[in-house]
Amino acid sequence: MNRQRLARSRPLTMEELPDVVQIAHGSGGKLTHQLIETLFVPLFDNPCLKALGDQAILDPSTERMALSTDAFVVKPYVFPGGNIGDLAVNGTVNDLLMGGATPAYLTASFILEEGLPTKELAFVAESMAIAAKKAGVQIVAGDTKVVERGAADGLYITTTGVGFVPKGLQWSPAHIRAGDVVIVSGTIGDHGASVLAHRFGIDFESQIQSDTACLREVVMAVRDLPGIRCMRDPTRGGLATTVQELSHTSGLNLRIRETSIVLQEDVRGICEVLGLDALYLANEGKLVAVVAPEEADECLRIMRTVKESKDAAVIGEVTDDIPGFASLETYIGAVRVLDLLSLDQLPRIC
């Protein structure tokens, strides 16, 4: 994980590491090596990483390759239902999956805040290792930098992922046609609601858990259906932003129905209380699929057999009557355009 050769001394155990992260942990010297050798290498355990070279040398198949990268700066870095570690793995893995790729490798780049308890770092790294194993990916390269206290919120992680796309598979919004069906893999807004409820520290007691999850099983279960046009994971900006983007790119109108969209009861609660719109809250374990009408039932049936998408539902259809815009059919049967949100949502009293 670092450019220099390791100073070969007796390897430390996790307990022997200093209690908190220090600036020197990012300097490339002895402390950096200790951290990598004691913490990351055993946890992420794979031959590429163990080689500790300047790069990971991969042996790709002949399939097409998918590449994706994402930075994670979530605050707080531990939230109900997950932490920045599993989020960083699942987020990039899911981005690969949305292109139909089989995720294979990740790199992880850490920005640590001086003073971060080593235990916390180990906890996050362990979550990453577990998430990576579940997602079937290896973390094969990485980097560690430390910034001064106050310059980061604990830690930030950037992951880059590589996956392979089977021959003949080409999901793209360009393939969306009027009459297609829009499916979402479960409840929406869980991650955004869980983070917001925490961030504003407004003393709400709730059981809201982030939905952070790897979508590998879901995608693999339905990948062979030829009727799948494309998939997206509605992360930042939420479901509304995703259907808006798909409408824009396809030049069609994804119309979703308010009555078909399901929210967990307490996500509903926090949205009502703080005046937030769940359509714009982030999801970290959900996908939106646009599917040919004749295969929608089959797709739904299969998705519902997978744990991560057991609540999958058809939430709308594609039309060509408001080209380039997504729209929402409301409870009372009216249709309005879904705009992109200009600013982050803040709690409201009014």
């Binding site: 709730s206 609660g269 926090i270």
Partner: peptide, 8 residues
């Protein structure tokens, strides 16, 4: 209790 969200 407001739809599962509790507050004082």
């Amino acid at each position: 209790d407001m739809a599962g969200v509790k507050r004082r």
